[in-house]
Design a protein around this nucleic acid. Structure first.
Lengths: 112, 112
DNA sequence: CGGCATCCGTTCCGATACTG
DNA sequence: CAGTATCGGAACGGATGCCG
């Protein structure tokens, strides 16, 4: 594991280190999604955070944006191959959490 | 992928979502380490963050602390089996980063 | 050696209001 | 529908000084 310095960890966290990026990627896994769809399925997200998250993921080349000049306007977000590969890489972590969160629950105190 | 709500992602990020936790775990992978050793190898970490990180990882059951009543005092931190398993789960993400960071570099602008 | 407590600037992020 | 702009509280995190 090449972790002589914090560069790798830093890069992971800069990319998916927020509360929402991984969730957004996960919801795009089933195919293109519209802004409103994401807003509804990501319960509790603010418009601000959804927009910010989509922009950053776009800048990092993990998702792509397609807007259609219709009435009403329509915009679709999709995973890029790069984003799909990241999602696959993160799958191990998601699996770990679903396997072990009860162990953490036992150890952790409520006030966090 | 069970991501109906943000609980899973939230839990990952509560646990390893900081700049240092994953690095600390990685450095404990080679065996027990002392406080001072960690402080030196984690370039740039403040005492405050090292202490905080160690406490949280301990509370989550990912590392264990052993203190020896010697002179001078000695304290050793080690990975628990749970911590080791998390590290293994995160390995996929680390590998992904080392494979693809150049693609992100190309897309990302400097000012972030 | 191995910490903890305090201060304090920076960043994050939700709420709200408004726009193409 | 799909955003942008702005504000203000909360959390993060570094620096410093003190303690067992």
């Amino acid at each position: 594991m090449p972790v002589e310095n914090g560069e790798f960890v830093r890069r992971i966290l800069d990319t998916v280190g927020g509360r929402w990026p991984l969730l957004v990627l996960a919801h795009l896994d089933g195919g293109p999604r519209r802004y409103r769809e994401l807003e509804q399925v990501l319960t509790g997200i603010s418009q601000r955070m959804l927009t910010l998250t989509l922009h950053r993921l776009g800048e990092d080349g993990l998702i792509s944006r397609a807007s259609f000049a219709e009435m009403p306007p329509r915009v679709e977000y999709s995973l890029t191959p790069l984003g799909k590969s990241l999602l696959d890489a993160a799958a191990g972590l998601v699996r770990w959490v679903s396997d072990h969160h009860s162990a953490i629950d036992r150890a952790r105190r409520p006030g966090r």
